[in-house]
């Protein structure tokens, strides 16, 4: 199963054969194995797990983006921003969440509320990833 995994900041896999990929998406978190039915999904902030052929499991946090599973079993993950989970800072992640929560409680317009709610969702995913 050939995987292409790239973000605006870094290319993680360039057509590398892997065993399995788990992705967080708006249609739920799901695992991709070879011969998965062709699918398009929109990524949610969270951890993508890549099970490499040699046995290593890489955990990469994605902000958002798309995942495409093609008919030939190739998988493309394109993220706006993605980093290895070990580059995340747990206190910075908690800080993002607490700031977002206070933004949400003080937001007055619908748009401000919606933006803050997104920030809370991202903050929760970040905190979960560093725990």
């Amino acid at each position: 199963m050939k995987l292409i995994f790239a973000a605006g900041n870094q290319v993680f896999y360039d057509a590398v054969a892997v065993k399995q990929v788990d992705v967080p998406s708006f249609s739920g978190s799901f695992g991709i194995l070879p011969k998965h039915v062709p699918t398009l999904a929109v990524l949610k902030p969270g951890v993508v797990s890549v099970f490499e052929n040699e046995g290593a499991v890489k955990k990469i946090f994605v902000s958002s983006g798309t995942v495409t599973i093609n008919d030939d079993s190739s998988v493309q993950i394109i993220a706006e921003e993605a980093v290895s989970v070990d580059q995340l800072d747990s206190s910075a992640a908690r800080d993002v969440l607490s700031k977002a929560q206070s933004e949400l409680s003080s937001a007055s317009t619908d748009q401000a509320k919606a933006e803050a709610a997104i920030a809370v969702e991202v903050g929760e995913a970040l905190v979960k990833a560093v725990e």
């Binding site: 902030p45 902000s63 706006e80 995340l88 977002a100 997104i118 991202v122 970040l126």
Partner: peptide, 19 residues
């Protein structure tokens, strides 16, 4: 808001949570 808005908020917050 659109997913583009969602995505840019998520990307910016992710950058702030780095070491």
């Amino acid at each position: 808001l659109t997913y583009i808005d969602y995505s840019s908020i998520a990307a910016r917050l992710l950058r702030r949570a780095l070491k």
